[in-house]
Design a protein around this nucleic acid. Structure first.
Lengths: 351, 351
DNA sequence: AATTAGCACTCGTTAATGTTGAGTGCTAAC
DNA sequence: GTTAGCACTCAACATTAACGAGTGCTAATT
């Protein structure tokens, strides 16, 4: 059987209506649909065909039809008309404080959740090539050194290094010079054993401090890459969709959001299949999902890139009947704003 | 009417049973309660008295009794037998990395939630007297200065200061000396207009940098005190208690936990009424709660002190029939461990 | 005087039954 | 190819009935 123009129109009408109402859609509803001048009986015949072809499902005899996963997929791939919606909020957000990345991401995810009415998540950027940009040791008090690391992308890491015995200011200065001249511009992979040995040798009696610094560098990088932070917002939006908010499902979904480990999996999957997607925006519908607890949801994901090898993932989680158009266009918008903000850092300090 | 020994025993039995089952407790159940050798009829008479006195409630005619808020209150104040439970986990946790306070708090709240099976929250420490301990400006690249602030309690704040035009190393050195000598040891309240004017004057052409630094100090302090971080865990535990997990209630509760602003209120209230409580542990039952969305819950709170004026609040949120004994003793335990860990910082650096 | 057994009564819970109405599939007419 | 008409289905809702846990009261017992 062929999916002719009229069938497509009807399928589209069914899905759109269902996206709004969440209730099975009947033939009479569609026959009243302005574009088509057909009786409910004709619609019924077409719907029967569409069901046979697998695009829609009857949840039970003598109920209307709802889209199947295949139907949603067809809709996402072929039928969506992207809305262009203003999102100047992002602009504002970005230019506020580019150096406080964590804060920006938290705000961003909140904004996404409240704009879409779905649950949103965003992974902190992963540093595929994090070069060291700046290292500084300072004496805070007699028994503690403060280590500040700045990496490409202005990621700042601090830690305290306990001292066996106090260091002279001069020694600290020398250590700073040594560390910066040897390590600046290097990625962690490039800091190898022979370099470490050389550093220690040059540090002489203070080699123990150098060791601590290197430990902290390793730790900072590990923390960034291994337990990359995931921010979420609007998880409780799922209560707005009855099909997700009954006890069992809601509990599992919210736990997934609370614990975040599962979300890592999702993000990993997005990154692994990323090559396929041209635009970087992907849609998972129902069973396509790698995460068990989200089998009744759809997820739209996007990868963001902040230049300098920083990349992360944004995800919007909602019911299968989510407003795909809106979500995709919102995400596209955010991506382009992010691009804009981070490829052209704000000029002037704007008081 | 008097609350004699037998009535107390029966009340205790009712509450204990209800804490376990969550179902109204009937007279027959209590008459089988080992300690008492009374028939259900006698129990009924006593229960009737207890109801009249306001300690228990009949949810509807011909149902068993459940504790009223007054009943819970009596239980908490008079009847609880504290269990002493091992919690060596805290010890371990604390000695790992005292300087990564954020991480410690996150782990701690997770542990509390999973140990109690209730929802847990913890506020980051508030700095009532945050003195500046160390200030450092460093040139990261031509157009950016890195500002590092260390406050009492080794709270580290970073920010980037954009530069109009590059500064010489010498200028930066002088600024550092100026800032440290003028501001170290001061609280924010002590940085007043005349001091600011004096600083700017001494900085000469670089007064604009000084201004940025002061802005950042103000901002850092504001961030610490106004939107003090609150970590939560186990919010989804409420699904384990049917009386809290029906749609409406669950939604409101979880939203409260997600958004966190409401939790601020709770914490504020705890701090304001703190003076009353000797031990620092307080119990809010039902309507005693300042937060609307938790009217069906009980909350046990405790204030922790980490020395140097750092203090914060821990809260456990659960159903009214929460296991008060366990929660209170768990909290007590955590408090003492925290005290121990932070009043005696770990000796040696332990590899 | 305190305790207990017995009994009628209440009322939430559950299952069974009836009713309704939206929606279908099919057939025959247009 | 389209439509009107009709019998049929079935989830949702309302009604009713049976059940049983639990009570309050009274009278008998200790």
């Amino acid at each position: 059987m062929e999916l002719d123009g009229r069938k497509v129109t009807i399928l589209k009408a069914i899905i759109k209506t269902y996206l709004e109402t969440g209730e099975p859609v009947g033939s009479r509803t569609i026959s009243k649909y302005s574009d088509l001048k057909l009786s409910s009986a004709t619609i019924r015949n077409e719907m029967s065909d569409l069901e046979e072809m697998g695009y829609i499902i009857q949840p039970h005899t003598s109920a209307g039809r709802i889209p199947s996963d295949k139907g949603y997929r067809f809709y996402v791939d072929q039928l969506m008309e992207e809305k262009d919606q203003e999102m100047n909020q992002v602009q504002e957000l970005m230019f506020q404080r580019v150096d406080r990345l964590e804060l920006v991401l938290k705000r961003l995810v909140q904004m996404l959740a409240s704009n879409t009415n779905y649950a949103a998540l965003i992974s902190g950027p992963q540093y595929h090539q994090n070069k060291l940009k700046f290292i500084q040791l300072s004496k805070v008090d007699a028994e503690k050194l403060l280590l500040v690391l700045v990496m490409e992308g202005n990621i700042i890491k601090n830690s305290m290094i306990p001292l066996e015995k106090s260091l002279r200011d001069e020694d600290i200065l020398n250590l700073n010079i040594l560390l910066n001249s040897s390590l600046n511009g290097l990625t962690v992979e490039e800091i190898n054993l022979s370099l470490i040995a050389k550093l220690k040798e040059q540090a002489g009696v203070h080699s123990i401090v150098v060791e601590s610094v290197l430990d902290q560098i390793a730790e900072a990088v590990r923390a960034e890459t291994e337990d990359l932070p995931i921010y979420t917002s609007g998880a409780t939006n799922i209560f707005k969709y009855p099909e997700l908010s009954d006890g069992e499902k809601a509990s599992r979904l919210l736990s997934t959001f609370e614990q975040k480990e599962m979300l890592q999996e999702l993000i990993a999957d997005v990154n692994s299949s990323e090559e396929d997607a041209g635009t970087g925006i992907q849609v998972y519908i129902g069973d396509e999902m790698p995460v068990q607890s989200m089998k009744d949801c759809s997820v739209v994901t996007a990868n963001y890139v902040l230049g300098e090898g920083l990349r992360g993932t944004i995800g919007i989680v909602g019911p299968k009947r989510m407003d795909y158009d809106k979500v995709v266009s919102t995400l596209r918008n955010v991506m382009s704003q992010l691009d804009l903000a981070f490829n052209k850092p704000p000029e002037g300090d704007g008081g």
